[in-house]
Design a protein around this nucleic acid. Structure first.
Length: 306
DNA sequence: GATGGGAGTAACGGGAACCC
DNA sequence: GGGTTCCCGTTACTCCCATC
């Protein structure tokens, strides 16, 4: 059996409701002849005359009477399915979003983001998941709602991205370190003992490439996997590290930060999501919240919630 | 380009209402 | 009661559009 023409449901509903081909035609903005032909197709499909002549009008057959309520209900359900989604009521919205972030994001943006979300949707919860890789599988499988970080070569091509902010690397030492005073030259910078940050254990990075182009080489005595560990080591030693400025704003409290004495490498922090969520109004609202918070100047974020 | 489905137009037939 | 008019449903023909 071929697939039935579901438009005939609308025709049947109109004819049964109006009890007249002409009135049903007016109701569906068709000509009487088109409606009559549609009724003929309905008769052929159902194997029942459905409506038969009675004087100048038509009267329903027992089958048509039996179908009337069912058809009405089906049409209403179909119209409900095809109606555009209604805007969500954020004041009562209950939902938990999973965000994958690197350390430093929660400290610098998390509180502001939570505060902003609570203003509009008090029942929405955020679950920050620590970033251990850049695999997009969790986005695809719906485990994650948003992934925040640097979009790289490992990012799946179907994943949607939006730039949040650009960040540059700066140098960090403890307050009484030699580099906390006086002019910092590339040579002075390179002479100290350094901590390199690399999640995949790569000792060399763009900073080393830049130093190399200047004929310099820094002495990396340890490699760690995250910013917080590097800054904790810096706080308790004479070591030097380089971290993204905005991303580590609050993590660097009590430490001395300085611009690198050479063109500093820049990174672009983006949010990534699966296209499945692209049109979802609630998810779109979340993305706008994240964008709004991340686009505020660093000083504004630091001055709030104190 | 051929084919099929859907819609419009015109013509026709049947029934009800109205008038004489 | 018969003729006329109007309304409604049906059918044949035609056109348009999408699909193959």
């Amino acid at each position: 059996m071929s697939n039935p023409d579901f438009n005939l449901l609308l025709t049947l509903d109109a004819v049964l409701a109006e009890g007249s081909v002409a009135r049903a035609a007016r109701r569906l903005h068709l000509s009487p002849s088109a409606m009559s032909r549609a009724l003929a197709r309905l008769r052929e499909t159902t194997g029942d005359p459905l409506l038969v002549r009675a004087g100048r009008g038509l009267v329903p057959t027992p089958r048509a009477v039996a179908l009337r309520e069912q058809v009405r209900r089906l049409v209403q359900e179909v119209q409900e399915v095809l109606r555009p989604a209604t805007p969500p009521d954020f004041s009562t919205l209950q939902r938990t979003f999973n965000l994958r972030v690197r350390e430093g994001f929660v400290e610098n943006f998390g509180l502001d983001l939570l505060h902003r979300i609570q203003q509009e949707a008090p029942a929405v919860r955020l679950c920050f998941v620590q970033k251990t890789d850049r695999d997009s599988t969790a986005l695809r499988e719906g485990v994650l709602d948003l992934d925040i970080g640097v979009a790289g070569k490992n990012t799946s091509p179907e994943v949607q991205t939006r730039q949040l902010f650009r960040d540059r690397f700066i140098g960090v030492v403890r307050q009484d370190h030699d580099l906390s005073a006086g002019e910092i030259t590339p040579t002075r910078f390179a002479l100290g003992q350094h901590i390199s940050i690399a999640r995949r254990g790569m000792e060399k990075g763009p900073i080393d490439d830049t130093l190399s182009s200047l004929g310099l080489k820094r002495d990396i005595i340890t490699v760690v996997g995250d910013f917080a560990t590097a800054l904790a080591l810096v706080r308790a030693s004479n070591l030097i590290t380089c971290v993204p400025e905005q991303y580590t704003g609050k993590l660097r409290a009590g430490l001395h930060s300085f611009p690198l004495p050479f063109p500093a490498p820049e990174i672009t922090i983006s949010m990534l999501w699966h296209p499945r969520l692209d049109a979802d109004p609630v998810h779109r609202w979340l993305r706008n919240m994240v964008q709004e918070v991340c686009s505020r100047p660093f000083e504004d974020r630091n001055s709030q919630h104190t």
